[in-house]
Nucleic acid binder design. Sequence first.
DNA 1: ATGAAAGCGCTAACAA
DNA 2: TTGTTAGCGCTTTCAT
Lengths: 344, 344
Amino acid sequence: MKKEITIYDIAANVGLSPTTVSRALSNHPRVHVNTRKKILDAAKLLGYQSNIFASSLRKRRSKSIGVIVPKLNSPFQSSVLAGMEKIASQSGYNLVISQSMESLEKEISNTNIMYNSRVDGLLVSKAGTTDNIEHFQSFFNKEIPVLFFDRVPENNHCTGVVINNTQAIYDATAHLIKEGCKRIVHVLGNLQINVYADRLKGYKYALMDHGFVFNAENVISNELDEDLGERIVKKILKLNPRPDGLLVSNDTSAASCLMALKKRGIQVPKDIAIVGFNNDLISRMVEPNLSTINYPSYHMGEVAMKNLINHLGDEQQEILQKTNTITLRSELIIRDSSKRSSYT
Amino acid sequence: MKKEITIYDIAANVGLSPTTVSRALSNHPRVHVNTRKKILDAAKLLGYQSNIFASSLRKRRSKSIGVIVPKLNSPFQSSVLAGMEKIASQSGYNLVISQSMESLEKEISNTNIMYNSRVDGLLVSKAGTTDNIEHFQSFFNKEIPVLFFDRVPENNHCTGVVINNTQAIYDATAHLIKEGCKRIVHVLGNLQINVYADRLKGYKYALMDHGFVFNAENVISNELDEDLGERIVKKILKLNPRPDGLLVSNDTSAASCLMALKKRGIQVPKDIAIVGFNNDLISRMVEPNLSTINYPSYHMGEVAMKNLINHLGDEQQEILQKTNTITLRSELIIRDSSKRSSYT
DNA sequence: ATGAAAGCGCTAACAA
DNA sequence: TTGTTAGCGCTTTCAT
């Protein structure tokens, strides 16, 4: 490995002190314009590259933000990440990204690595099995801001960027009821996750408000993956009376249910109406197009990152502590998969 | 911010030198078992966290890998990243990720940031407009390994992890010909990118080998996005004779073409057969299911990361330099969107 | 506007 | 097996 060019080399080259070079390089105001120019020129000439380790060691800041997501390869998360990256890079922050694979154990390990990596702030969408936030304690102790997004822990003082999941599913349920559905099955993920717990609430409230009786048989909590469709459809076809409405907590799974239904000759929305969640691309590509909840994922990434970065400067993170929740707008998008009115 | 606990604190606590503490902490063999235990206990007790800046400054290694992709929010890239993250985290490496947004300018900027961040290695899938690799020169000079994946630069000595794009499209084209297609339109991305240039070759070769005449009108180079379908379908419907085969370089765009065709009452595969690329989820969710090329994206991430990390130890990167290309297996998956035989 | 000196926390020679 | 010493490259008082 070649020798590093340091500010000492530049200093020697231009006949000034390392201090002045350092100041010039970091745009300190108290450096004469000509001096700065001379130094910058020399730096370029010598091929100088600042050593961020030395700088970070000294300044105790890394100019990097950690992000922990459950899974990297999901349309939702990758879109959030894209939004985050945009803002971070605009502000000169690096993104250190890791995935918890829905495992609390790995989330803890990731968190520790992030802590050791001295990220200036942490953005987390928690794993399904995470039911406490002890492992972030080291961040809290050192007052390194931690901000949750989408999947936020319950009952705590952390800021979270979320959508109103309860309202979203309330609207979806009410919509299905209005379309004449009599038995609506709700398929969702791990109920330990706020996202799904809230949606279940919205579902219940909507039933209640429309004079329906809640029936636990109509709620299926499951791993939301691509193969969900077959499993779910088998299950719901055994129910009596047969459900005529299906509320699935993500579009991929909803699409998969749609496939499984069509395969059996069950017509959507005539026999069963479907509403998905997220407004992923796939919701516009299947037939019939899926009604869904528009989830502003890219925007969520931007907002979360912006809020985190805005508060990095503050010595005391009061504002971030006090802004407990930022709720983004989401809305029901009605497409053909749930338009039953014409058939009834 | 609270005071840091350092190895000096531990040393003082257990009555040993910082050196021994450092050795114990990094599992150096020449430390007595009891000593190590005492040190580890004290470290835990005091809440010690190693300072990677100091360590990296001293060791001149960051234990982090940079990844630059064109876009974070693509099913393909996020799957590659997931594979990379898995391997990296297993080996104790952090992932610093940024996106070039298909802009050479941003790619250069990202590259410089990665260089300044002192990543131990760099993984790149290049932007569409990148036609040289000068901006990686600083990495080459310092012998920091750079490995390209999927979109690799032409004519250079860098290692790349790729699939055989030429063969893949050759097979797809041959398949369409066998299914009786007489006029096959090939829709692909920016031809400056090896991926698409190679595919065009495969298309031409296949035509040639089957006695077809290549016609430039049948090649459409375009931005491959979700809205592609309408644009493409309008174009091809103007062609005379009307094409009966469509080869689209990613599944999202292929699905979008499929939608646009169906909207106009054109039947797939009877009137026009379609083959996509990537084997994204969406290819299995549209109707008819899309024939496509299975692209082992997750695996590509794993392989690329493994190869990079394997060669980080080596002082001289000879092996990496000499292994010029790693080609992963890809294969044609035939589904309903291209099964025309029964109609002819 | 510029400089001298100290030190961030760690590790690697070298010595014992 | 353990310790001494020096220094990685930078920034930040404090002085001039």
